[in-house]
Amino acid sequence: MAEKTTIGKAINEGLRRAMEADPKVLIMGEDVGKLGGVFRVTDGLYKDFGADRVIDTPLAESGIVGTAIGLALRGYRPVCEIQFDGFFFPAANQTFTQLAKMHQRSGGRIRMPVVLRIPYGGGIGAVEHHSESPEAYFAHTAGLRVITVANPQDAFWMIQQAVSCDDPVVFFEPKRRYHERTEADLSGTLDSATGMDAARVARSGTDVTLLAYGPMVKTALQAAEADTEHSIEVVDLRSLSPVDYGTVFASVRRTGRAVIAHEAPVSAGLGAEIAARITESCFYHLEAPVIRVGGFDTPYPPSRLEEHYLPDLDRVLDGVDRAFDF
């Protein structure tokens, strides 16, 4: 039963489902209780599940992830909200040296079903440290799964899949798309959903494959609509670790061209890795080099400049043009 809803509401509903299905699922983070989170993603959960399951933590990100590890060791499934992308870094030690490695170093005896929810990306006119796209650090770390959503439907399913996954999952939420209303069906059971590792062809096309994820999927779809010269196929990656290369390669082999767009800085970003893999595996199908469109290798600028920093429709189409001008 489709209805208009938002990514924020869909995650909220997905979390509610996960908490109803498994009493071991906990929410923890700063302001996630009575306030419902600064983006209201956990709104109402404190009221319905209580302070033992929706935990307002002290203001300390390392403490959040570190105690989540301990709770997971005791059999719980904590979902941690990191309030903003730029505030993750105090938790980097616990995430990279502890959470990510625990399963392997225990010889598989210990499972770490911990979800880190991180609102990310720019475009909301925020102050410093509230607009970053740090996903490459996570995708570079063995032991973490990294996923991100672009629409309420995926948000609803993928947050539940992340919670039920026995590995640590970093769940990136496109904060500038939180409140956009689109159609989604928030009924049905989890087993009918596409796996969270899978990419999705968001729009079919024949001339060029445009790869995007999270907040850039909408921009990519708008670019595809706007381009009257080329038939653009848009692939929403959804999962950044692992990347669904099967879907990516199949598309690029059909179209012969690939453009990758993300908000994060281009150098050593996800696009660089994906471009390399496409080149290794689709070399004879390529009509042009793989093109990357992304943020600059600078700190995220003050918000009055962010429209120049973020790849918009025109920058994406400029990338598409470069794939044809070659």
């Binding site: 033992d52 403490g63 570190g66 989540a68 590890i69 301990g70 997971a72 005791r74 719980y76």
Partner: peptide
């Protein structure tokens, strides 16, 4: 990694409380 386990112990103890 020095001190990391103190948080794991604390989280575990929070689980003991919830159990």
């Amino acid at each position: 990694v020095i001190g990391a386990q103190t948080l794991h112990a604390t989280g575990y103890a929070m689980g003991v409380q919830r159990d």
